[in-house]
Design a protein around this nucleic acid. Structure first.
Length: 279
DNA sequence: CGTAGACCCTGCGCGC
DNA sequence: TGCGCGCAGGGTCTAC
């Protein structure tokens, strides 16, 4: 399901539902997702602790708990993280669930991860170890932070070669820009995804920054979904509210010029673009 | 050192 | 109606 906007929408939807709730037991139903599930660590860092806050870094959801522990969830391609009644039957592909104690607001529930393709990831660790954890230590800047700017991209491009789209999707440069929004942002910036990063002007970098920010923040505002199987933390489905200009529109007319949208595979992923508008 | 490609896994839609 | 194929939002590893 996720790109950055979907994870951010999920974070916001879960925040009131999980805030101050106490984790009880963890139910691990699969041996591994992208990595093995460490039942002992998951239980040890969560059982009995209350949720103190929810954060996001790149496409990772960070659930901070009492006593300086953090539960980390990544949804991969097909993960859904939802809160359901504790007695809800086990869902197909429900690989792990964290039970939540009843309080004055909610009955006993469970926070469950359903992930058919199992590209997701769940682990827990001391909060202080997050920055040096191997999943986080090499991550680039957040695209909605001030540090994401034309100078940063131009500097990063000097150390690399290859096409612009792959550069934008490189998490060591900027995080959270996945295949859909990379395509959308480059269409909006009117620059070709195939353009070599060495041949991008300062002015164009500026347009790319503006476009990435706009595409992501609009998707968040609109409830995050471009994706047909997205659901927020309450299980509400997505609404296809985000109008996609190029992604999935091969052969359909460009909204700007009417030229049929092209599709080309780059690094094993489909790239959609307008060959007239994007140079 | 960077970069390109394979790979992890299941489900879905399409054409036959 | 059923089957096989291609394709899908992510990230990481290996071979060059």
């Amino acid at each position: 399901m996720p790109e950055l906007p979907e994870v951010e929408v999920l974070r916001r939807s879960l925040e009131p539902r999980l805030g101050q709730r106490q984790f009880t037991r963890v139910m691990v139903h699969a041996p591994a997702l992208r990595e093995p599930l460490d039942r002992a660590a998951l239980a040890g860092f969560t059982a009995g602790r209350r949720v103190t806050g929810l954060r996001r870094r790149a496409k990772f959801l960070l659930i901070d708990l009492e006593d300086e522990a953090t539960l980390v969830v990544h949804l991969g391609m097909s993960g859904r993280l939802t809160v359901v009644p504790a007695a809800e039957p086990l869902a197909k592909h429900e690989h792990v669930a964290f039970h939540l104690a009843a309080d004055e607001r909610y009955p006993e529930e469970r926070l469950r991860l359903v992930d058919p393709r199992r590209f997701g990831l769940v682990f827990a660790l001391p909060t202080a170890e997050l920055p040096t954890d191997r999943h986080f230590k090499d991550l680039g800047v957040e695209p909605l932070a001030d540090a994401f700017n034309a100078d940063l991209l131009a500097a990063g491009a000097q150390k690399r070669s290859g096409p612009l789209k792959q550069f934008l999707m490189d998490g060591q440069v900027v995080v959270g820009v996945g295949n859909i929004y990379a395509c959308e942002a480059l269409w909006r910036a009117r620059v070709s995804p195939r353009r070599a990063v060495s041949r991008v002007s300062a002015q164009t970098w500026e347009r790319v920054v503006v476009a990435v920010r706009a595409v992501l923040s609009e998707a968040i505002t609109q409830g995050g979904t471009t994706l047909n199987d997205f659901a927020d933390g309450a299980g509400n489905p997505g609404y296809f509210q985000v109008q996609l200009a190029v992604y999935g529109r091969e052969g359909e007319p460009c909204f700007t010029c009417g030229q049929p949208i092209s599709r080309q595979v780059q690094a094993g992923r489909s790239t959609f673009y307008c060959s007239r508008c994007q140079r």
